[in-house]
Design a protein around this nucleic acid. Structure first.
Length: 268
DNA sequence: TCTTTATGGCGAT
DNA sequence: TCGCCCTAAAGAT
């Protein structure tokens, strides 16, 4: 379930649950046993997200977590129960615990190594220190498609397949257009929309992009059912009618990821 | 009880 | 561009 909004939400959840207190750190599955032992019992004093990367600060050691495609956290109250499934990392106090399963990265970094991660990431619409101009300079010079550029974490950090599809729909931009074919006002609108949508996503814990006038209720349609839970225009709506113009939503594989768009609403 | 799928990203070719 | 890594749940058989 992880695009950037989820990671920022997790930074907050972890800090609210464990911040300022000594935390028992373990790896029931064993694959992170050595790292867990190094920080076991230390106090969590910072939690931060940059794009899809989560950083939990334990003194001079940073726990760096990336959920990949299907990693996830489970939080619970009370003493931690026997682990279910492959729990790579468990954080626990006497009254709360968090289990991490399936991450692509779970490692300890020095401050310098953490800095290096930040340096290879583009601006994150959810961070106050984000420099949108950095992304624009890359995009406006590129012959790569806008679809691929928005997913490139070196260009822009935190946007995933859902936000990419949805923001391009909302602004009527054909995903196949080259970055250099975008206008500055279009880029400014993309950035502004991402900032707003992703902040909403942090609060809601899901991705909702459909404007009030196009919700199923407003359109007299049956409510949409999808695993990811949010209300969206095109993501995973292949062959279903566009919520605005009724044209069937199209999909194709694009740079090894599924791309969704409305061929009528999104023009070059 | 299989096979497939997923909101990601890396390194090799 | 391909193969591969991580895990669980849903879908097919």
């Amino acid at each position: 379930m992880p695009e950037g909004h989820i990671i920022h939400r997790l930074a907050g959840q972890n800090f609210r649950t464990f911040g300022g207190r000594p935390v028992r750190v373990s790896s029931p599955q064993g694959r992170f046993a050595d790292g867990a032992a190094l920080i076991d019992g230390r106090t969590l004093d910072e939690a931060e997200a940059h794009g899809k990367h989560l950083f939990l600060g334990f003194g001079d050691a940073w726990l760096h977590i990336h959920l990949g495609l299907y990693g996830g956290f489970t939080f619970g109250a009370g003493p931690a129960p026997a682990p279910v499934g492959l729990v790579r990392l468990r954080l626990a106090t006497d009254d709360a615990y968090a289990d991490l399963r399936g991450p692509t990265t779970c490692e300890l970094l020095t401050p310098a190594e953490k800095d290096a991660v930040h340096l290879r990431l583009g601006p994150d619409p959810l961070r106050a220190d984000a420099d949108a101009g950095f992304a624009w300079r890359r995009i406006s010079r590129s012959s790569t498609t806008v679809a691929a550029l928005l997913m490139d974490q070196k260009v822009l950090a935190g946007v995933g397949n859902v936000y990419r599809a949805e923001v391009l729909f909302r602004l009527g931009i054909d995903p196949h257009r080259a970055g250099r074919e975008l206008t500055r006002p279009q880029w400014d609108a993309i950035w502004a929309d991402l900032v707003a949508l992703m902040h909403d996503g942090v609060g809601a814990g899901r991705i909702d992009t459909v404007r009030p006038e196009h919700t199923p209720e407003a359109m007299g349609r049956p409510p949409r059912v999808d695993d990811h839970g949010g209300e969206v225009y095109v993501y995973r709506r292949t062959d279903q009618p566009c919520l605005v113009c009724e044209t069937p939503v199209r999909t194709e594989e694009h740079a090894a990821r599924n791309l969704f768009w409305c061929p009528s609403c999104q023009r070059r």
